[in-house]
Design a protein around this nucleic acid. Structure first.
Lengths: 117, 117
DNA sequence: GCTGCAGGTCGACGTTCATCGACGTATGAC
DNA sequence: GTCATACGTCGATGAACGTCGACCTGCAGC
């Protein structure tokens, strides 16, 4: 197992030969990387990240009407962001009469957190 | 401190009044959210996420020529991804002669990891 | 000098995204 | 029934993104 990968610059070599033996390998497979990246991408917007932050800080479910005034965006745009978060499996919602309540799905951020160490 | 945010649907109310008192507040300010989102966004691509994964798994620095054959993309596209990761402050590079070596900046993912809990 | 290679940059292309206003759909109040 | 409200969806628009090939820049070897 090659721990220190600081490869010697074997500059004296035949033309066309690779600079070094390929020893690195991805540790996460393509499917897992895609899943992790999907969650990261959903969090890759300041508004969505703050949305998740607000929802996570509250044990219960939060009404959309509470979220709207927190941001300088229209309600339709906020709805779009919530839809994206739901598509990424980070939040879910529940309707009660006129209102919709959102909450963070338990364990939704677990994989990304685990990957980050 | 309102722990359970499951707001009662106070449906009996005067027209125009909000459904509930606004009690939620974002815990991360706008600037911190923007910084966290920038890192998350940089990780929001499967190739970039795998790149970081490979670099993190090796204590030393990894030559670009080792990274190219790991993915089904052109070298110019890979260079673009590495540039994005560098712009996000996640990796940095160092040239030695013909070759460029990339490495993950220590602590670059610390904030995001901390926010995730 | 010249040639070949590694890797970064540039321009172009098609796709996806964030945002908005407008509209649709339920629901509750009357 | 009618009307207002809360929220979602739709269509449009401009910006950002991922990808590529072509080109440019250094460096090593001749």
């Amino acid at each position: 197992m090659n721990v220190d990968l600081q490869l010697e610059p074997k500059i004296k070599r035949a033309a066309g030969a690779p600079c070094c033996e390929p020893v690195v390998r991805p540790d996460v497979d393509r499917e897992k990387a895609a899943r992790l990246a999907e969650v990261a991408k959903a969090l890759g917007d300041p508004i969505r990240l703050q949305l998740v932050d607000v929802l996570r800080k509250h044990a219960g479910k939060v009404c959309v009407c509470e979220l709207v005034p927190l941001f300088d965006i229209s309600q339709s745009t906020l709805s779009h962001h919530l839809k994206r978060l739901r598509a990424a499996g980070i939040v879910d919602s529940e309707r009660q009469g006129l209102w919709a309540y959102y909450y963070v799905l338990p364990g939704a951020l677990e994989d990304l957190r685990g990957w980050l160490g």
